[in-house]
Amino acid sequence: MSWCSRDVPMMSETVNTDQNMPKSILSLSDIRRSFQIGPTNTEILKGVDLEVYEGDLLSIMGPSGSGKTTLMNIIGLLDQPSSGYYVLDGDKVSNLNDNALSSLRNKQIGFVFQAFHLLTRSSAVENVCMPLLYRGVRRKAAVRSAEEMLDKVGMGERLRHRPNQLSGGQKQRVAIARALVGSPSLLLADEPTGALDPNTAKEVMSLLLRLNDEQKLTVMIITHDVNIARQCKRQVFIRDGTLIESSEYMNAAHSETADRNGHATAAIVEG
């Protein structure tokens, strides 16, 4: 079974015509991104194809510098590809202006970062309110939703705490609440457990699993941790600027004698 093949139709309307198929959240086709580093133009993403459906739980792995964050920035509408097609929840997002991208990002995307990226001077509730305020929700209503969301992620007792009064796991819960408060269609997590100790990491991961399971939340997790990847429904790898789905990757790995990616991939192959 292949989720990411170049033969997948680009437009989501076409995808959704089949009643048995789940709704497409994300469709990337031949996405390329290159950076000018000094005099040379280096292509980091060399034609990425990816189809993500509602309720997917997807891990992205790959060596450091392979372009995982770059891909997430493009998916999260923070960056634009040098070329390629990108359809997000039925909207073709290539060639949108900055305002349109910002408002689409506000409504469709929830970010969770390794470094939490909470506003350090603001309380948990104030942090979680933010996406709602930027879409024009009134303060009172935003606070109410934020409090509910914090309660859902188990932070109901620490609404007024500032980030420096919270542990790493608690900060990440606040960040998850903030990512989810605006009911995005896609949660993007860039190494969400990277800064956490193993036990806390496990808790945060099970929160994400639970949200995916109970709310059919679509989640993409960038990780270096095979245990985390293993808990995801789909595993995707970046190699040489393109994506390989786990099934394909295993085949590729078998056929390759020297695997430069080391332990992580070995573990996946074994698992």
Binding site: D98, S102, R105, N106, H117, L119, T120, P131, Y134, G182
Partner: peptide, 16 residues
């Protein structure tokens, strides 16, 4: 810069 970037990631427009 980080605060601004976070706000932008959460959907703040340039004019915000």
């Amino acid at each position: 810069r980080q605060e601004i970037a976070i706000r932008r990631a959460l959907g703040a427009q340039r004019r915000d």
